[in-house]
Computed example of a mutant assay.
Amino acid sequence: MIYPRTIFPAIQEQLQSNKVIVITGTRRVGKTVLLRQIQEQTRLVTLWLNGEDFDVQALLAQRSVAAYGRLLGDTELLLIDEAQAVPEVGRVLKLMIDSFAKLTIVATGSSAFDLTNQTGEPLTGRRIHFDLFPLAQLELGRNENSLQTRQQLEDRLVFGSYPEVVGLATSVQKIDYLRELVNSYLLKDILMYEQVKNSAKLLQLLQLIALQAGGEVSYDELGRQLGISKSTVERYLDLLAKVFIIFRLGGYSNNLRKEVTKSSKWYFFDNGIRNALIPNFSLLAQRQDIGALWENYLIAERRKVNSYQRRAVESYFWRTYDGQEIDLLEQEDGHLSAFEFKWQNRRVRVPGSFDKAYPNATFEVVHQENYVDFIVPSYPAS
């Protein structure tokens, strides 16, 4: 099944904008399929290029308007898959978009290293950027009723929601796919573009983060466990974030002395990847980490929907040195919303220090009975 992606209509609206539309996301998340859908549903004259093709790289390396004119012909929509593989892709795209007034370019990339960095400054004012993630419940729900969504919850907590995983019939098939994805694809961009010398340490670091998902991370302690420096740990985590495997939450503070601000929590964009790294694909009844799975799933889903709805939301966790804590804070337009995640529905009181410091903030407990409203909110797309 091909799932309609949330960002597709917004991309369609820009297909005659004479701009560069950049779509970034990790490998196997559906970027190529999305590009095919764009091609199939437009009446514009299109040209498809694969940035990993050496012949394509050689053609684009000529860097001349005449050469590009011969390549493009009457093309109105240029589609470049894996564009980050093209040397100096930002300068290439800038010359094209500045030279051909009827041209729009859609470029996809599986890492933020070269694609967003190289297209940033050269394309100031000429670039529109979208992130694409593993399937969000916002997208899956279009083919489900509420009962089916709840029936699929355990599967999504254990196996995640990469498009191909969702389409596989058995647990064995899903486990095999996720193992192959981790071993063959996910770290490819880091190893290729950033020339990381010790891939084993990078994988070990990712495994440690998987075991600590939802917990505060000490870079010094991770460095001691791995036998590498704190700065190397920080660099590796930054690289893993740039290929959309993990993301960071920092601590929130309004300059209160008791609030923890320097710590970090790291989460995975997909539970299936996290479980493949441990490795643990056991059913929920056999697991000791349901709380971590639940928290990671909800925060990742919320991050997806906030991105797709183009909301200017800052996300944090909150904790004081005396142990009071809240799983997620969102700050938007000066308003603070607090969320606590519990697998079972039970009464939870807002921490006293938080209530006193932020009396105008809202507080909500998210559990199995109300989680869909949290990850598929009812506010309209902007």
Rank of each mutant, 00 (worst) to 15 (best):
I7M: 06
F8K: 11
F8S: 10
F8A: 10
F8W: 12
A10P: 00
Q14L: 15
N18H: 13
T24P: 01
V29A: 03
K31F: 05
T32L: 05
R36Y: 13
Q39Y: 06
T42I: 07
V45E: 11
T46P: 00
T46F: 00
W48Y: 15
W48I: 11
G51W: 03
G51I: 05
Q57D: 10
A58K: 13
A58G: 03
L60Q: 04
R63E: 08
V65L: 11
Y68A: 03
Y68Q: 03
G73A: 04
G73R: 04
T75I: 08
I80W: 02
D81Y: 09
Q84L: 02
A85R: 09
G90Q: 00
L93P: 00
L95V: 05
V106K: 00
T108Q: 02
S110H: 02
A112H: 06
A112L: 09
D114F: 05
D114E: 15
E121F: 01
L123T: 00
T124H: 01
G125Q: 03
L132K: 06
L132P: 04
P134I: 04
L138T: 09
E154Y: 12
G160E: 02
G160K: 01
Y162I: 07
V165I: 14
G167F: 10
A169I: 13
A169R: 14
T170V: 11
S171T: 14
I175V: 13
K188Y: 08
K197C: 07
A200C: 07
K201F: 08
L206E: 02
A210S: 13
L211I: 09
Q212A: 12
Q212I: 01
A213V: 15
Q225I: 09
S229W: 08
S229E: 12
S231H: 10
T232P: 01
T232V: 09
G250D: 12
Y252K: 02
N255L: 14
R257S: 15
Y267S: 06
I273E: 01
N275M: 03
L277A: 07
I278H: 05
R287V: 10
R287I: 10
G291H: 05
L293Y: 03
E295T: 10
L298V: 03
I299R: 03
I299V: 14
R302M: 06
V305K: 05
N306C: 13
R310Q: 15
S315I: 07
S315W: 06
G323N: 14
L329M: 05
D333C: 08
H335W: 09
F339V: 08
V348F: 02
V350Y: 05
V350T: 13
G352R: 14
S353E: 14
F354R: 03
Y358M: 07
P359E: 09
F363W: 11
V366G: 02
D373K: 15
P380W: 11
